[in-house]
Design a protein around this nucleic acid. Structure first.
Lengths: 202, 202, 202, 202
DNA sequence: CATGAATGAGGGTTCATTCAT
DNA sequence: AATGAATGAACCCTCATTCAT
């Protein structure tokens, strides 16, 4: 999925939308006129490239999901060691949730939200796409873990995948509700996550 | 938080809203006239009890969060044994996610969605309230686990809580995306979750 | 037109309405609920005595027009001398325009406004009624003026009446836009009015 | 205040509103959809040029007050002689009150009515503007009257102005309530007005 | 008789979409 | 191709009126 599959105007719309979301606008109140302005194009132009506002938003989410997840997948696949992969992803999760301007964060909250528009079917595609990327990341991690003898190969594939997924989601929850855990630093939370993961997978 | 804190009309609005959500209407497109119709009251009556559509929706979410979570907390606290508690909650998660008509499911997806309206602050309250209930459930589980010697008391409170939370969220993910795991039955997924939990907590 | 032609509730509505107008509420935005509250009766009760909000307002205007104008007519008719009559009316005009709480002032501005509601026909009645009272006042004045030899009887009845009317309206204009005439005191304005009147009628 | 300060659409709204008023619609019940229809534009377009219905109405009143009063002022200032000025204005008053389609008549009744909307402050501006135009007309008349020796210069400025104003308002009253004076023709009423004026000013 | 809770028609305003330029 | 002025359907909310108590 290369960006040059999209025209300049489409990219402009995607970026304009991302910009608005970063500024705190929420996806549900967003107006076409705002998108057009943020994209520096005329309102009518959006309708030359998209059939509706909803489609434009959906395409933007899709674009960013691909862009951002591809970056992460590539990055993780480049890291040779299990532990480094895990910590890199914990860092990524932290950054993306903490940062107001993380397109991924917006995406992740948007994914479930897509249903707001009558794009439920399309929404499924977004989720599936995300799962696909997640699958690739999990595979890469399991690969390393097994090579390094950290993961007991007797565990079922589901067991292994769900274990890793759980740990990441658990950490994401921590970051999301950090203020509920004032006595737990981020580094401690990461170490806890890693320790738990090791225990499960052994 | 007893229901008789609310007037009949308020309850009617809450139920009407739940009804609509169960029917697949989504929270973002919902119209006041639909709510009124579903609640079997006049449109204007809503405004005798709530200041705005948004407030009505927020109050409904709050009401159901309290109602449903209270039920679950009470149920869990009545169960004496660790393992039974875990399996009961796994069942609850399964039921709530599977069932189109689960108000809790709607709630959980709505909670993060509440931000759509300009009730972000109120939305925080909803999340905090959920976290509070979740905390009570976790405490009850940990209590049993420690009594029964399943949970090593040397683990930090955060370690214990996050472990349990992770496992539940992980299972919720499974149920949500069941079709991605066609070779894994629900019972297997539950057993995996329990096994993982035991491993982490030991 | 004695007040005992009206029931207590009707009087309550009239007074409530007057109260609201004195408080600066304007006749066009006034709500039935406000009238009911000001009248210390239930909203529904108004409909036991009036067919509609508009009718209630119209009846109140009529009531006050009668009440206030009757007072003025009686007062003027009691005064024996031409000059005193004129000055008494100039005083009355001043008081009524100056005072925020003058029901007559409200009435006079309301009279032309009555057309707002679809009571144009009724509005005509209000104006006619006012003209009738005005006619009695003018007659009384002319009577005195002629007896005292201030008014030349050779003038036509229209000439005489219009002269007096003009002078009063002119003074009313002065009071209404007093801030445009900062160098003219009220007493001077009254004297000017009287002087002009004498000149015309002679 | 030239009309090209306004866009075509604004003028269309002004004219549409005037049209509606001429048709007997009253300012208080007027609907945005009616204005739009009368202006031959879409309802939404009004909101591209005005912030609210009230603002649109206020701007229309302002526009017509300026337009109509400017016309009258220019006309009067062109007339060289005192008597002709007076009779011209009496004619103008007659025409404007008689004609259902006089925008000025509508304006004058609207000016005091403006208070209905919450534009009381703006309403003041309208009245002040009217007074300003009226002041120019009075000055022009007095100027001629003094040159021609009709007005005794010993009279105070207020005396002179209020005299003229009174006469005009008095005549306006006659026209407004013509049916109360069935034995007085318009021409007689004008002559009476002029005679009275001469008497006062001498 | 008196009430005020309930109603729903109605209207101001917004904003996605169109289309003439 | 690109625009943004214009549109009008849609929807939230108000408030005059009703009617069960």
């Amino acid at each position: 999925m290369r960006s040059n599959e999209y025209s300049d105007k489409e990219i402009a719309v995607f970026n304009g939308l991302a910009e608005l979301l970063k500024q705190g606008k929420n996806l549900y109140n967003i107006k076409v006129s705002e998108i057009a302005k943020a994209a520096n194009i005329g309102k009518g132009t959006i309708y030359d490239y998209f059939d509706s506002k909803e489609e434009a938003i959906y395409m933007a989410l899709l674009y960013y999901l691909n862009t951002e997840m591809t970056k992460i997948v590539i990055e993780v696949e480049k890291i040779p060691f299990f532990k480094d992969k895990i910590y890199r992803l914990l860092d990524t999760i932290e950054e993306n949730i903490e940062s107001k301007s993380s397109t991924l964060k917006i995406l992740l909250s948007a994914v479930d939200i897509g249903s707001m528009y009558n794009l439920i079917e399309e929404n499924e595609k977004l989720i599936d796409l995300f799962m696909e990327y997640a699958g690739r990341i999990l595979s890469s991690i399991i690969n390393s873990g097994e090579k390094e003898g950290i993961i007991a190969e007797t565990n079922s594939p589901y067991y292994k995948k769900s274990a890793i997924r759980c740990i990441f989601i658990g950490f994401a929850q921590y970051v999301n509700h950090k203020d509920c855990y004032k006595d737990v630093s981020v580094d401690v939370a990461k170490d806890v996550a890693y320790t738990q993961l090791i225990k499960i997978l052994r």
